[in-house]
Design a binder for these strands. Structure first.
Length: 476
RNA sequence: GGCGCCGUAGCCAAGUGGUAAGGCAGAGGUCUGCAAAACCUCUAUUCGGCAGUUCGAAUCUGCCCGGCGCCUCCA
């Protein structure tokens, strides 16, 4: 079965063919580390994580890069106000980003290049563009990309088929550009830039990089150095980056190398809250920290995100999050049951229900990463598996085989809650369960129920099964 | 003004020409000391509205209504 992905460049779902299989180069536009990334930002990163994990499930050797933008207008302004350097200012948010990433169980990328660590590559790229006549120095000393000189500008965002809103950006521009469409590659250093340490020497003048430059420079530098190529297999990001960011990346990169920059462009849709886009500007953001404080399990959030296709807007609501939590919990229950049924046996005989699961899962994911359908396949399997377990239809070896597949699929979605339990809690619960059993045997159900309430207050749920009392810690 | 996406049960959400997946919630049942979990059964003759194309449309076309996004260094 072929993996098919939607390519923004063609506006079509097309077969995915990496340049040099089994290697896949995946570059995702990461956060601007000027504040805590909100869960809307993380929806995109989760989408990228899903893509990466599924590619790996398919056997590809995925090389992943995510940039950290640590120098831009917002950062400089904020650092100036805080009276710190850009470096100092961004460090803590970069750190926070990694914490949040880990909390949401996003697999770390191979590289997280920071813009300020690649100034030399950016300078080289600008020089190349100047040499090729695709860039020029403006009256203010800044260097601009000459859109008119680059053939094919607007292919990604279909600029040729649209008109700019009258007066939207032409007159309001603060720089000296020859053409309104031109964009800054290198901005002359201002006093503030110098103050916060956001200025570097370059042959074409002291200054700092324009926003789009970093992705082109870093992506090219990393894959050129490692694989000797100048074309990425996949470049991902949020839909808002299609224009101008990615359009400009193409112009810079292809202008400099003369080679296709990216084979497949993928864009994730927005996370909405209260029906509108989550954005710092609207003051309606929610961070991963907020989620943590509210006791939202990472598996719940992942489940919520993957329950909607990545190219569809997703409205974040308490009800939806609750539904996702319940669903995720169901997966955890099944996984635990399977573990008990397998009882440490080695895989022996693959039940056909498992083959069905794997087929349905792959079919869904192959269709442009249809996680909602993949989850439907998983839940259908959950019902069937529980029935088989009720019937005692699977041997320990078969259960072990089921686990093997189930876990491999969950490795892609990573939506099974994991409740970490401390040893002393375990000992305490074990003691309480014994006390409750004594009460139950004595027929003192009031006392037994009191103990159940007691542990429930500590987040522990007790379940009486034919094999004895089991307990689980509620997620979150 | 230009470009684009979306509107499916109480909620979330698949389905893009062949007669409505899946999850959550809800109702009843099995099991249980009671629960929990799990399983079984039920829950949209109907897919924003109106026309049209077709043997057949949630799916294609047109118009209308409603929501969202991009055109601003916003994931």
């Amino acid at each position: 079965m072929v993996l098919r992905l939607y390519n923004t460049l063609s506006r079509r779902v097309e077969p995915f063919e990496p340049l040099a299989p089994p290697r896949v180069t995946l570059y995702t536009c990461g956060p601007t580390v000027w504040s805590y990334a909100h869960v809307g930002n993380f929806r995109t990163f989760l989408f990228s994580d899903l893509l990466r994990r599924y590619l790996e499930y398919r056997g590809y050797d995925v090389f992943t890069v995510m940039n950290l933008t640590d120098v831009d207008d917002r950062i400089i302004k904020a650092a100036g106000e805080a009276g710190t350097s850009v470096r100092e200012f961004t460090d803590r948010f970069a750190e926070a980003f990694f914490e949040d990433r880990d909390y949401l169980r996003i697999k770390p990328a191979d590289l997280y290049p920071r813009a300020t660590a690649h100034i030399e590559h950016m300078i080289a790229l600008v020089e190349q563009l100047l040499d090729r006549g695709l860039a020029y120095r403006g009256e203010d000393g800044s260097v601009y990309f000459s859109v008119g000189a680059f053939n094919g500008y607007g292919r990604l965002s279909r600029l040729d088929t649209r008109e700019l809103k009258p007066g939207a950006r032409v007159s309001s521009d603060e720089y000296s550009k020859e053409d309104a469409r031109d964009f800054a590659l290198w901005k002359t250093a201002s006093t503030l830039d110098e103050t916060v340490g956001a200025a570097w020497d370059a042959p074409f003048g002291r200054g700092r990089p324009g926003w789009h430059l970093e992705c082109s420079a870093m992506a090219l530098a990393e894959i050129r150095g490692r694989f000797g190529i100048e074309t990425l297999d996949i470049h991902a990001g949020g839909v808002d980056l299609v224009f101008p960011h990615h359009e400009n990346e193409i112009a810079q990169s292809e202008g400099a190398t003369g080679r296709p920059f990216v084979r497949c462009w993928m864009h994730g849709e927005f996370l909405l809250i209260g029906g509108t886009k989550m954005s710092k500007r609207f003051g309606n953001t929610l961070t991963v920290r907020d989620l943590r404080e509210e006791g939202v399990d990472p598996a719940s959030f992942r489940m919520l995100v993957f329950s909607t296709h990545y190219r569809q807007q997703l409205n974040l609501t308490d009800e939806a999050l609750e539904a996702a939590t319940e669903g995720a919990q169901r997966l955890a229950e099944l996984r635990e049951r399977l573990g008990r049924a397998a009882a440490g046996a080695s895989p022996d005989g693959v039940p056909r229900e498992v083959e069905q699961l794997e087929r349905a899962f792959a079919e869904a994911m192959n269709d442009d990463l249809s996680a909602p359908n993949a989850l439907a396949a998983v839940f259908t399997f959950v019902r069937v598996a529980n029935r088989r377990l009720d019937e005692g239809a699977w041997s320990a070896g078969e259960a072990a085989a089921v686990i093997e597949t189930f876990d491999r699929i969950m490795e892609v979605l990573e939506v099974v809650p994991r409740a970490e339990v401390e040893d002393d809690l375990t000992a305490w619960v074990a003691e309480r369960i014994k006390a409750r059993q004594r009460a139950r045997k004595a027929g003192d159900y009031a006392a037994a129920d009191a103990i159940r309430d007691e542990v429930a207050a500590c987040g522990i749920d007790l379940k009486d099964t034919p094999e004895g009392t089991r307990w689980t810690k509620r997620a979150g």
